[in-house]
Simulated assay, not measured.
Amino acid sequence: MTKLHLRRRSVLAAAPALVVGTVAAPYIARAQGKPEKPKVVLAVGGKSALYYLSLTIAEKKGFFKDAGLDVEINDFQGGSKSLEALMGGSADVTSGAYEHTIRMQQRGQPIVGFALMGRGMQIAIGLRKDIAAKVKGPADIKGMKFGVSAPGSSTHMLLLSWAAKGGLKASDVIAIGVGAGATVVAAVEKGQVDGVSQTDPALTILQDKGLIDIKVDTRTTKGNQEVFGGPFPAACLYTQPGFLKKNPNTAQALATAIVRADEWLQTASPADVANTVPEAYLLGDRAIYEKSFAGVRETISPDGMMPPGAMENCLKFLSDADPKIAADKAKIKLEETWTNEFAQRAKKHS
């Protein structure tokens, strides 16, 4: 990639409100017309979670189809598994946590995010009621077992970040992959884990049943401000740079569908959302699902674009949790992990 293109991307990433037409963009200058690849394979880890609600809405409301796409969605246990699908070549695009773009750059395997779904992490850490009273702070969780979606996923990283605040190493806590949804609830009910680092609606169900006490909560704007100091980029669409260059129209169609879903969710009633998602996603309790959605709505991106300062908050979070990221922090080029170009264009024409 040329220095000029890097400069252009840096400008766009640093100024989300910038009008696309003022700078020649490296990807969407050609992103017009029909998708080059109308059949797209998309990987996701734990699709039933509210964390990925924009993806499900884009699918169920026909927004992908409206954009000229036939999207095959493959659901894995967690974000680390869906990332593997992308890097292994079995998926074209992944719906996953933005943080993976930073982690993969540190490993010399670049991926780029291009349509944001969450501007807050939407994950919380809870401890079983019978254990919670013994835990005054993160130093007290040494040796405990926590249910995460999958080891290496965002749920795991939040756990490690919290543990680090108590002076613990990654090896001091045990992360067990329990997926998302009903399997999370079952893991707590059966006493298979001491706590969980998870997404909604499973968390709200566990709270409603009186089974867990929440210790760290990023499901609200206030929570993200307290934990990260501002917005935190969560679920997004990301892919390898070569895909964006080769298929700009396809990427634009994907981004347009996600932005439409983001926008729809800003005004949809909780009942509208519950009526749109698959029945199984409600986990047998429509009222709790609706309550869960209402609780996280403010952390859903309104426009698919990266908020100012969010990438920096994510890098700091990863540096605190991962010594390898911390060691290479100064070398990380955030402007190469994200482009607002597609979401800007989608918003402009929505």
Rank of each mutant, 00 (worst) to 15 (best):
L6I: 13
L6Q: 14
L6K: 13
V11N: 14
V19S: 04
G21P: 05
A25W: 02
Y27P: 07
P35N: 06
P35G: 02
A43W: 00
G45A: 07
G46S: 15
Y52Q: 02
S54N: 11
L55I: 10
K61A: 12
F76V: 04
G78P: 09
S82N: 10
A85L: 00
G88C: 12
S95T: 09
Q105G: 03
G108P: 01
Q109L: 12
L116A: 03
G118P: 12
G126K: 05
A133Q: 11
A133G: 06
A139S: 04
I141D: 01
K142Y: 01
G143H: 04
L160A: 09
L160W: 07
S161A: 13
I176L: 14
T183M: 03
V185E: 06
Q192D: 15
V193C: 00
V193W: 02
V193Q: 05
G195L: 00
S197T: 10
Q198C: 07
T199C: 10
P201V: 11
I205D: 09
L206E: 06
Q207W: 08
D208I: 04
G210E: 12
D213A: 01
K222W: 09
N224D: 12
Q225I: 01
F228V: 04
G230A: 03
Q252R: 11
Q252G: 09
I258Q: 11
D262C: 15
L265P: 07
Q266C: 11
S269A: 12
N275P: 08
T276H: 15
L282S: 02
A287W: 14
I288N: 03
E290K: 00
K291G: 03
S292K: 04
F293R: 05
P302T: 08
P308L: 04
M311V: 13
M311S: 11
F317D: 07
K324S: 12
A327C: 05
A327V: 06
D328Y: 13
D328F: 05
K331Q: 01
N340F: 08
F342H: 06
F342P: 00
H349C: 03
